[in-house]
Amino acid sequence: MSFADLKRKSQTNFDFLQKELEKSSSGKNVDERFWKPEVDASGNGYAVIRFLPAPEGQTLPWAKLYSHAFQGVGGWYIENSLTTLNEKDPVGEVNRRLWNSGADEDKETARKQKRKLQYYSNIYVVKDPKHPENEGKVFLYKYGKKIHDKILAAMQPEFQDETPVNVFDLWEGANFKLKIKKVAGYWNYDSSEFDSVSALSADDDELEATWKSEHSLEAFTNKDQFKSYEDLEKRLNMVLGITQRTAVPTVDSEEYEPVAATGGFNDPDITPQSSFRQQMSAPSPVKEEAIVEDDDALSYFARLAEE
């Protein structure tokens, strides 16, 4: 860059540095691949996005990931769960023992520390009032069961007079109107809905460019994203207070839904308490943890991949 260019671009450089300072002062590592909606002072937010088909060479347009995030006497336990891979996980093993004890205190402990479910998809941002510079770009989007249920409801409608829609389709899909309200301190997506069926663009060249801009989804569930059972068990023992306390990491509270006061066995996983230590001293009957899969949806996309 010449001195003349330096002078001419001084304001542009200043704007760039301002944005970089905002990122560094936030204390978080920002992954530029992800898009996240924002809300106003009253807790309301609005945006229009389009869910995109599976990336080239991959089968499903989403990745499904279970994880744990809870605090014990020895620190925090924030790890991906091996149940994502249909394997046994040490937290689930201990949690079943808590649940099978029959004690209300143990059940409440397990319920509070249940697995967290997250989905990842590629999206195209149609409208982002808070950040219009994101419009027309492809991002990764992390979302929970509530939005995924709306996707399934559109694909597999409950009533016969409703037409199924593959919302991930570039030509016969539908835009998603994301509407956020703050309810009891948490983001609520109940008012969100899909628009009528439409093509994302009339230009196939543009659609192909959008598709080729997608990010890998299989990367989220690759084996290298999970620690071994032994390493997870070692970390869990530390959190239970067997070794020294560790630093507290940051967790985005809006990513997790409030814990219900009641629930069944398949809801929870675990936390450490005094009664838990008593349970650890003797084995109890263990029931395998059920992993609910969206079989119909998985079969649907498997058929699409074969066509």
Rank of each mutant, 00 (worst) to 15 (best):
S101L: 07
F139S: 10
A54M: 10
A69D: 11
L236P: 00
L178I: 10
S2D: 10
E218K: 15
S196A: 02
F3V: 09
A247M: 13
D224M: 06
D295C: 04
K182P: 00
F16H: 11
R33E: 04
D106M: 11
N44I: 02
L60Y: 09
I242L: 11
A261W: 09
G241Q: 08
N44S: 11
N222K: 13
K107T: 08
E257N: 11
V286D: 02
G241C: 10
F265D: 07
E193S: 05
L85H: 12
A103T: 14
N44F: 07
P53E: 07
V239E: 06
N175S: 12
T221E: 02
A69G: 09
A202W: 00
A63F: 01
V183H: 02
D128Y: 04
Q58I: 04
E218L: 15
E158M: 10
S284F: 07
W171S: 14
A209F: 09
R97H: 08
Y77G: 10
E193D: 01
R111G: 07
V248F: 05
Q225F: 03
F194H: 00
G136V: 07
F14M: 15
F176K: 08
K114M: 08
R97Q: 10
L236F: 00
T262F: 04
T84R: 05
F16Y: 11
Q225S: 06
F34S: 03
D128H: 04
N29Y: 06
W187Q: 04
P285S: 00
E255Q: 12
F176H: 08
G263A: 00
P285H: 00
Y189A: 07
A209R: 13
D128Q: 04
W62E: 01
N100K: 12
Q71K: 14
W62V: 08
V39P: 06
P129Y: 02
E289F: 05
L52D: 08
R235W: 09
G74H: 14
F139R: 10
V251T: 09
K145C: 08
D128W: 06
M1S: 14
D161L: 09
S198R: 00
Q244L: 14
P37W: 04
K9V: 10
E22I: 09
N134W: 12
A154H: 08
D204W: 08
R8K: 13
D269T: 03
V165G: 01
